[in-house]
Amino acid sequence: MIQASLLNKSFRIHKKQPGFIGALGNFFNREYHSKPAVVDFEVTVRPGEVIGLLGPNGAGKTTLMKMFTGIIVPSAGELKVLGQTPHLRSREFRKQIALVMGQKSQLWWDLPALDSFLLLQKYYEIPKADFKRRLDELSTLLGVIDLLEVHVRKLSLGERMKLELMSCLLHEPKILFLDEPTIGLDLVAQRNIRAFLARYQKEKGTTLILTSHYMADVEALCQRLVLILGGKKRFDGKIEDFEQILGNNKIVAYDFDRPLSTEDPVLAPFAPVWNEDRTRVELTIPALQLRELSQKILKDYPVVDFHTEKLPIERVMTQLMDRPELL
């Protein structure tokens, strides 16, 4: 589906000193330099895979997406998507992909979404019967039947995102690129979009490439993660392996009904992190000791509640973003 080898992309940028003097100086003397955004990137994506591209802001995720979709031209390296060179942008290639941009609308702002869909039907040459069937199917699944004839500018962000998704799926693309599809959405809207994408992918077997800063998106959808730091690939593997990248430890938090001593000798070996009033502790416990230690704490301590961390990949991500040398 996607084959990238030694892929590189650099941008030419210039700096400007602040203020009018800076602007004047910049007008007469502009120094350009090259900023690498993606460096020697290699990846192979198989049909039907769901891959999360992770990394901090400016890591190169979106630049990769832009190269995969043919929007920008790589500076060097080999890239084939669906057997084609993306930046040559053949019509055949473009008919097989779609890109959802969380921060940019592709629908006509002043018109109802249905007008945009009818336009896309012609652009993608979708037969009328297929178009009607997909329109019914997708609008029912996403619960947007009543919104199709409402002007896009009148919709909430969550409603608009559902319709953006629809617009990208009407031609049943083989690869769907999702660039932060849940950005800015409330929790319910995020959950709905995730649930829809998971169901759609399962039914159609579409290859999904996702970037998101919400680890819940990644955990709910992706089987494989690719971590990019400073334009370079630093991890490529299963989500379970990513969770254990910094060791096979579990983070468990215990709530107590009264303050305890922070010097407790039983808890001390497990890097305890206490809250302000010493009624809650978070322990990092090796997987092999989890059962035994938990039993002991539940039995001997005034525990009122306990839970394991919900998104281990979020912790791993945070640590790696702070200290990339850990990899």
């Binding site: 942008r89 652009y123 993608y124």
Partner: peptide, 12 residues
């Protein structure tokens, strides 16, 4: 403003 992106993706 990067708004021509859609027309680089559409087959039009």
């Amino acid at each position: 403003m990067g708004k021509i992106t859609s027309y680089l993706i559409y087959p039009f």
